[in-house]
Nucleic acid binder design. Sequence first.
RNA 1: GCGCCUGUAGCUCAGUUGGAUAGAGCAUCCCCCUUCUAAGGGGAUGGUCGGGGGUUCGAAUCCCUCCAGGCGUGCCA
Length: 577
Amino acid sequence: MNIQTLLNQRIQAAMVASGAADDAPALVRQSAKVQFGDYQANGIMGAAKKIGTNPREFAAKVLEQLDLSDVADKVEIAGPGFINIFLKNEWLGSALADLRHSERLDVATVEAPQTVVVDYSAPNLAKEMHVGHLRSTVIGDAVVRTLEFMGHNVVRQNHVGDWGTQFGMLLAYMERLRAENSEISMALSDLESFYREAKKCFDDDEAFAARARELVVELQSGDEQCMALWQEFINISLEHCEETYRMLGVSLERKDVMPESAYNSDLQNVINDLEAQGLIKEDQGAKCVFLEEFANKEGDITPIIVQKTGGGFLYATTDLAAVRYRQKVLNADRALYFVDARQSLHFQQIFTLSRKAGFAQPSISLEHMPFGTVMGSDGKPFKTRSGGVAKLSALLEEAQERAFQLVASKNPDMPEEEQRNIGRVVGIASVKYADLSKNRTSDYVFNWDNMLSFEGNTAPYLLYAYSRVASIVRRSEMDVSALNAPITVVEDQERALAVKLCQFEEAIQQVINDGMPHFMCAYLYELAGIFMSFYEACPILNAEDALKESRLQLALSTAATLKQGLELLGIETLERM
RNA sequence: GCGCCUGUAGCUCAGUUGGAUAGAGCAUCCCCCUUCUAAGGGGAUGGUCGGGGGUUCGAAUCCCUCCAGGCGUGCCA
C-alpha cells in the first residue's frame, strides 16, 4: 500500500480534468500538522498559476472532479489553495488487514524491475579495513537490501583495491619472511602490522626497496611466481574483509568482488578508444582528456589524466573501464557509487567522459552517492585513542563489549551467554544505526554514549521497542496466525499508529530514490515512538475480546514492520532484551 | 586562484526537493510504575535557520554577495 502514490494519481487526474497541464504534479505529501489532515496536496497553487486562474477557485474545480469517498471522509481546501485529506478510519482498518495478511506488509514489488549495479565497500586490500570503510559498506548494503526487497535486480560490485605500487613492498616482505622461514600466515593475521613492518623495511633498506620496485614490474608483466605470491596475499586479505562483513552482517560475498585488477587487460583498449575518437591530447608527457565541462571562467581546463608519462594507468582509467563493463556486460539501468564525497570531481569527470566516449549510453543512470567523514569528538577525522586509524574489527569488538557491559548492568540475573548475544546484536546495531540514521552527505561525530543510548533515534531504542512488542505477542498466548477479527481504528493513538504502518512503502521509496537509508531510520523511529504512545494509552491484553484482537493485530503489524525495516537496514532484532 | 560541500536550539541531528506557526533526542525543569519490559511515557523551557540583499501568493530550501569551516584541484587511489 502506497497512499501517497494513490492520492497523487487520483488528484493529478482530477487536476488534468479541471484544465491543468498533463504533467502538472499534485505534490501529495504527508501533512505537516494534524489539523491539516493525513495528507496534503501542494500542487494546486503552481498549476493554477500556470493556467492563470485563482488557486482556491481552481482547487474547488478539482474537488468537483475528485472522488476520494472510498478512502477519505473529509477533503478540504485550506490556506492559499492546499487540499487537505483526512483518511477514513474504516478504510485504514481494511488497509491494515491487507497489511497484516501479507508476507510483504502489503508492499508490492516494482512493475518494471531495473538492473542496478551498486559499487560499495571497496576496501584497499593492502591494509585492513578501517573506520573509513564503514559508511560505504553499511549504507551501500542497506540500499542493496532495499532495492532487492522491491524486486530490482541488484549486482553488487566490491571494487577492491588489489593493484598498485604498494603491493611490491608487501610482496617483497613476504619473500623475505619466506626466506627466513618465518610463518607467513601468522604474520598476515594482522595485516595492519604487516603493512607497517613492510613499510619500515621499504623506508630503511635500500636493497629491499629496490626488490619491491622490481616486484611491481614483475607483477605488472604477469610473472607467474610473482602472481602466485600476490594471489596468496589477496586471498588472505579478502578473508579478513569477509570476517569483518560477517561480524557486521553485511551481505557481500566473494562472488561480489570485482577488483581493480580485473580491468587490467582492458585499460589499453580504453586508451585506444579514446584516442580513436580524438579525445586524447598529450600534455607534458601524459595522455589527457580536456573537456570543456571542466573549464573555469578563464577557459583553463582541469584535465582527466588517463595514462601517465611512461605508460602507467591511473584509477581514472580503471573507473572508465568499469563504467563500460557495467554498461556493456552487466547491462545496468542504474549504477550507484557509494564513495567518499572527496571524489566528487573525479566521478563527474568519469561520468561526463563516459557519456562523451559512448562507454555509457543515455539510458544508464550513473549516480555518485557521496558520503561525509566520520569525525571524532574533536571535530577531526575519527582516530583511536593512540591517534592511529581505527581498525574496523577492533571498533566492532569494542562496540560489542560496551553493549555487553550495559546489558549485564541492566540485567544482572540473565545468563551470561544471553547477555553476550544481546551485547553482540546491540553493539553492532548501534554502530551501523548511528551511521545509517544520519544524512548520508554530511560528516558525523562518532560518539559511543550517543549511539548506545536507549533514548532518542538509536538502535537500542528501536531494538527495545521491538522486543517489547514481541513480548506482548508472546504473553497473549494466542495463535496469532489465526487472528482474523476486524481491525478497528478509534482512539487517536490507534489511528496514528495505523496511518504510520501504512506508510512503510513510502519510506522504502525514499531510500531507493536518493540512496539514503536515514529516511528508513526516521520512519522506524517515528513508528516506535507512536507505538509507545499507543502502548501507554491503549491496553492490549486486558481489553475485551474484539478490542484485544484488533489491538493485538496492530501490535503484530508494528512488530513485523520494525523487523522488516531493520532487516532492510541490515540490523538483527532480538525477541528479548 | 578556481571548484564542490557544510553552517538550523547549549550539544547531537532531521527538515519529504518552494508550502501553512522550523522539528526530534540529549542536557535543564516538572509530572506518571497496585495494569502488557520505567532500557518507557506525558509536559515545559530553549531559534534573527551564519550575515545581508533578491526572486513570489509563500524561502532553512532557489539566485547574488559577504563571513566562517572542511575537502578537492596534471601524472596516489
